[in-house]
Design a protein around this nucleic acid. Structure first.
Lengths: 204, 204
DNA sequence: GCTCAATGTGATCACTGTTAACATTCAATA
DNA sequence: TATTGAATGTTAACAGTGATCACATTGAGC
């Protein structure tokens, strides 16, 4: 809607392409994201995309990184809200995780598509670590960066269960056809059912 | 190795194509599975595949269905073994689930790729239900078909956590670079950590 | 004002899934 | 057993894909 004057140089193509991925993925699913479709949507020739991303995979990696960051932000917001309201921190963060997946399934899928992104990309890794630490923050109450490879069994359980339920929900394996509110209700109950696993050994 | 005589008719193309998917996916990853590559591997022209599968997606759906069945079989075997040895049934089934994902990541991924398979396919749905019931069987000790939409919070927790950990492991989000034994060890600890969640309310 | 690196274009490549017209074979029937 | 029709496989073609190349246009810094 901006960018009225059609200058030869776009000015912000790298970012615009990411937004195009966003829109196409949200509207038609991840499989519909095509380099040419993105370029057309931005109003630019297909080959120009390669000036900013060496690969389609690089583009998708950048998109995945952005999605990871968005999820992190959502978790931080949930954490803050729960802290302010003095409600259950763990449940709030877990529900925010699942809510994000249900609200933006294409984003959530894009984050973990190991075969279509460069998981070795430094920005991607950084975003992934940040997400991990925010999850641990929501769980253990500390917000400093942690090594995602040194998760306690309880932390692993917390992340895995929430992650797994999100996957099962958006893949329609479970609670198929139910509306979002019911699915979130099921998620809340699952999270609640996890409670006893944390009360007994406080910190392993 | 068999099929020496080059008859015009292949005889078992539908099945052979599935095996080609199997081999290519195992060797080069799911993204490398191409209709033409499968046909070439079987020694047949690309278009002949369409006599047996209306779509590439149909072929992948059949493959996913087969993978689901294999996983179900693995769970049943684990269940049987644990019952015979009188060891923890739930841990055995959960570990078998994760072990399958680690051993055959391409298969595990293929099962849930909502965007590349027909999740409405009747055989796929049947296999999915069967897997669900076998999981519930491993968890609750009953082996009759159950409606996967009516899982208790504990059942949901069990499935989600095991499913989520499998995903996080094969995507390299967690325990990256560790060998399979260590990853299975982490899985066993996570499953053990879940114990308290089940001891308290036996059957909701 | 000139120059050159950065950015965008058009033509083209090999490859993909898919289709349609045609070829071959198998199996049932007469 | 010979014929015939359905099942199965082939060849040639199509549009769409990611990718690359030489080339065009621009803007920033000398």
């Amino acid at each position: 809607m901006n960018k009225e004057k059609k200058s030869y140089h776009h000015g912000n193509l790298a970012e615009s392409l990411l937004e195009a991925v966003d829109e196409i993925a949200s509207q038609f699913g991840l499989e519909a994201v095509t380099l040419r479709a993105c370029a057309k949507r931005v109003g630019v020739s297909p080959s120009s995309a390669f000036r900013h991303y060496s690969d389609k995979r690089s583009l998708l990696t950048a998109f995945a990184t952005r999605a990871l960051t968005q999820l992190s932000d959502a978790l931080v917001a949930a954490n803050r809200r729960a802290t302010a309201d003095n409600t259950d921190l763990f449940a709030a963060v877990g529900l925010a995780y699942i809510d994000f997946a249900l609200t933006k399934p294409a984003f959530f899928r894009a984050m973990w598509r190991e075969e279509t992104i460069y998981t070795g990309d430094e920005h991607y890794i950084a975003a992934s670590r940040q997400l991990s630490s925010h999850l641990q923050g929501g769980f253990a109450g500390t917000l400093h960066d942690k090594d995602p490879d040194s998760l306690s069994p309880q932390e692993l359980l917390a992340w895995s269960s929430v992650h797994g339920l999100a996957k099962l929900l958006i893949d329609g394996t479970v609670c198929k056809g139910q509306d979002k509110a019911d699915q979130l209700q099921a998620a809340a109950e699952m999270i609640a059912a996890m409670g006893p696993a944390f009360d007994i050994e406080p910190m392993a």
